[in-house]
Amino acid sequence: MKEATAGTLESGDIMIQIAPAKGLEIELQSSVEAQFGRQIREVIGETLAGLGIKDAYVRAVDKGALDCTIRARVTAAAVRATGEDVWKD
């Protein structure tokens, strides 16, 4: 795994940075932290688990992204970090 980024800082988007690490650490900064921080961390964790990633440092800067956006950005960042294209049939 290498460092990789996906997403933007636009309203409604989330920027995901992934870097190699031991264990999983998610650092989240969100404009909707109080109401949705817990759910956003869960979605990031579940998406990574679904890709078989257990060790990673994730820095997420969220501007109110919906879950579908969060999953897409996490997946894209993970693909760029690992070089494994999960979208291929």
């Binding site: 909707v32 109401q35 949705f36 759910q39 919906l66 879950d67």
Partner: peptide, 10 residues
Amino acid sequence: SVIGKPDALP
């Protein structure tokens, strides 16, 4: 249904 149920504000 789109955004989930927000947690209570602190």
